[in-house]
Design a protein around this nucleic acid. Structure first.
Length: 272
DNA sequence: AATCCGCACAACCGCAGGAGT
DNA sequence: AACTCCTGCGGTTGTGCGGAT
């Protein structure tokens, strides 16, 4: 399919954004939203391509972006989710309100991956060191090692997609973040189904693994993660999502969820 | 004090897929 | 059905900064 040319036109600026550009972008989006990223820079008077504007907004300028270091809980959550989902950063990001896929990806590559790798090597050393103790040293499926580190060897096999429906709160979390990219735009959450899936097998897998404090705390982190309202936008969103009067028929949701998951299980097993 | 090196993070690039015509 | 447009995603790169030498 024809791909839209991006940044090919001469005169489009690349590289780091200046404060002025940020301000222009912010004020434009606050006034007009971003119905069309491609046309946005032109209308806003920015010498950037739409893609660049979108990235800048989503990864940096959004009002509900949570800046700063990742907490221990967030890191654990990322590790756990990565173990189950692989490099699906956007899905992982949807579980961490205020965090972007780019940010999570960076954190993974700079911190967490190394943490896991270093742990793996130490584990392997231990395993080869004592043959007698090896059967005990090798972590069982789902068993959690010290220092909150999870062996990557069990990553793909453990992915259990034959899950049961999850609670409705999971989807709320997802929507909270995925739909938060726009100010005026209220997009349908096209990931709803996926979000259900992800949450459900997240919850189920963890509940199976839950004989460890760290694991269960990770579970708690995810399922009870609260969106800190950092902006009016976030507050509005939370209000919408959490409002019990919104009229969601949860039985119906579960029904449809069940149907979708069954279909998914039949035809679309994830590949890792 | 100067230089080097590694790390962290922002930004870019190319691809896939959905929506519209 | 075929095509274009647009968005979103994941991988990769570039750059600035801080610590080590």
């Amino acid at each position: 399919m024809g791909r839209a040319p991006c940044c090919e036109k001469m005169g489009l600026k690349k590289g780091p954004w200046s404060d002025d550009e940020d301000q222009i972008l912010i004020s434009y989006i606050q006034q007009h939203g971003h119905p069309n990223w491609r046309a946005l820079p032109k209308h806003a008077g920015l010498l950037r391509c739409g893609k660049s504007c979108r990235l800048r907004w989503i990864n940096y300028l959004r009002p509900d972006i949570k800046r700063g270091n990742f907490s221990k809980e967030e890191e654990d959550t990322i590790i756990e989710l990565h173990k189950k989902l692989g490099n699906r950063w956007s899905v992982i990001a949807s579980k961490l309100p205020g965090r972007t896929d780019n940010e999570i990806k960076n954190v993974w590559h700079t911190h967490l991956k190394k943490r896991l790798e270093s742990h793996q090597t130490t584990t392997k050393k231990r395993r080869t060191k004592s043959k007698c103790a090896s059967s005990k040293a090798i972590p069982l499926k789902g068993q959690v090692l010290s220092q909150n580190l999870i062996p990557q060897e069990v990553e793909s096999e453990e992915l259990d997609v034959s899950n049961q429906p999850s609670s409705s709160e999971s989807s709320s979390i997802t929507e909270t973040t995925t739909s938060s990219y726009g100010i005026t735009k209220h997009e349908d959450n096209s990931n709803d189904n996926e979000a259900f899936l992800d949450d459900s097998f997240w919850i189920e897998t963890l509940s199976c693994e839950g004989d460890d404090i760290v694991e269960s705390s990770s579970l708690t982190n995810v399922s009870t993660v609260e969106v800190v309202p950092t902006s009016p936008l976030t507050m509005i969103k939370n209000k919408d999502i959490c409002n019990p009067n919104l009229g969601y028929d949860m039985d119906n949701v579960d029904l449809w969820y069940d149907i979708f998951t069954r279909i998914e299980n039949l035809s679309d097993l994830p590949e890792f």
